[in-house]
Nucleic acid binder design. Structure first.
Lengths: 98, 98
DNA sequence: TAAATATATGATAATATATTCATATGAACG
DNA sequence: CGTTCATATGAATATATTATCATATATTTA
């Protein structure tokens, strides 16, 4: 069993993680990336949103380690960081589809 | 494959679900209920918070169908609605513990 | 049925969050 | 090396969210 304080910290971190999933722009970005890697312009077009808004949200996703980025010439190409992202989204879907 | 609009709606619902998990008070309530059912007073004591704050958050959890409530005399006893809650939290933990 | 206990609710204030606009930074290429 | 294209960033605004306070509602019991 963990110490009470550690548990509290862990729960706060958990909430912070889920908070990242809890925004429709960010979820749409993640879903877009589930189809394959994309640069910022492509994501901006796919979501039909402001480029700056997308960049701001990508930053949050990157800080949460849900996506990774690599430069390719002038563009930055984003991808999902790992399989957990897909699993977490799949779990959420299951709950909704009841 | 789903229609584009249905997908959008589903993603928005997903975001709304995760938003519910994305608050430390609510996550702490869920974790508390993972140990067993509790009435409002007990939750209030376990989290050492204001009773009204707890009630407000319980309402949000109930609307999201993450918890259920039943009256027992003067108290309302809350429980986790289903196993998905535990699974989703477990998935989140996995991502964090890397 | 009045008092006590348990919970819920509405309004308010404080805080957090997302989007937009303007602009900065960085890379490629003539 | 100046221009163009791609992305990031900071400030400002608008909106959403949370906790608290005061109080209402509901149940039990003296």
């Amino acid at each position: 069993m963990k110490k009470k304080e550690n548990m509290e910290t862990e729960l706060i971190e958990l909430a912070e993680l889920f908070k990242v999933f809890g925004d429709s722009t960010r979820i749409r970005i993640l879903y877009d990336l589930m189809q394959g890697e994309r640069n910022v312009t492509e994501i901006t077009e796919d979501l039909a949103m402001n480029q700056s808004a997308i960049s701001h949200q990508l930053k949050i996703l990157k800080m949460a380690k849900l996506v990774t980025a690599q430069r390719e010439g002038k563009s930055m190409v984003y991808s999902l960081a790992d399989e957990h992202v897909k699993t977490i989204i799949a779990m959420g879907k299951e709950h909704i589809e009841e």
